[in-house]
Simulated scan of single mutants.
Amino acid sequence: MFFKLGLISFLMLLNSIPSQSAVSSIDLGSEWIKVAVVNLKPGQSPISIAINEMSKRKSPALVTFHAIGEEAAGLVARYPNKVYSC
């Protein structure tokens, strides 16, 4: 249940970011999430790993009701019973 809620929240967040890409792929592991993007613009690398708001190429596969990824990882120490991983 919590996994599906987190995945839906993450996908909605990605959908709100404007993109000029034809295809994106999400690698949802047990510890990390990565997003690959196929670029259509000439002169750019055809496939790249998207960066998150912390300028990292991977995000922790953690979710709370108020945060996703890096923000949720920062809340693990204070609220271990309210942060869920995949």
Rank of each mutant, 00 (worst) to 15 (best):
K82E: 15
A67K: 10
F65D: 12
L13P: 00
K82L: 14
V37M: 12
Q44F: 14
I49M: 06
L11F: 05
L62K: 04
I68Q: 06
K41Y: 05
L7Q: 12
V23I: 09
Y84R: 13
E70R: 06
F3S: 13
S19R: 12
S30W: 05
V38S: 10
A61F: 02
E31H: 14
N39T: 15
C86T: 10
G43D: 10
A77F: 02
V38F: 15
I51T: 15
A61Y: 00
S19Q: 01
I33C: 06
V38L: 10
L14D: 04
C86W: 14
A67P: 07
I26S: 02
K34G: 07
E31A: 15
F10E: 04
L28C: 03
E70G: 03
S24D: 00
L28W: 03
Q44P: 08
R57T: 13
S59A: 04
N15L: 09
E53F: 07
I17G: 00
K58N: 14
L11E: 04
A77D: 08
Y79V: 01
I33V: 15
P60E: 08
F2D: 11
V83H: 03
L7N: 06
S16T: 03
P42L: 09
V63T: 08
V76S: 03
G74E: 09
A22I: 12
S55D: 12
M12I: 05
P80A: 01
T64A: 01
G43E: 04
V23F: 06
I49E: 05
S85D: 14
L13C: 08
R57G: 13
G43K: 07
M54V: 11
E53S: 07
A72E: 01
N15P: 03
Q44S: 13
L7E: 14
S25D: 03
V35E: 05
L5A: 06
A73L: 10
E53H: 11
A61V: 05
V35Q: 01
A50I: 03
M12E: 12
V35A: 06
M12S: 08
I33Y: 02
V76K: 05
G43T: 05
I47P: 05
E70H: 03
S48L: 14
S19F: 06
A67V: 04
F2C: 04
I17H: 00
P46C: 12
S85F: 13
A72F: 00
F3Q: 14
P46S: 10
L7V: 11
E31F: 15
G6V: 06
K34E: 08
P60R: 02
V83F: 07
G43R: 07
L40E: 13
N52F: 11
L11S: 05
V63Q: 02
V76E: 10
G6H: 02
S24P: 00
K56N: 14
N81R: 11
L13F: 00
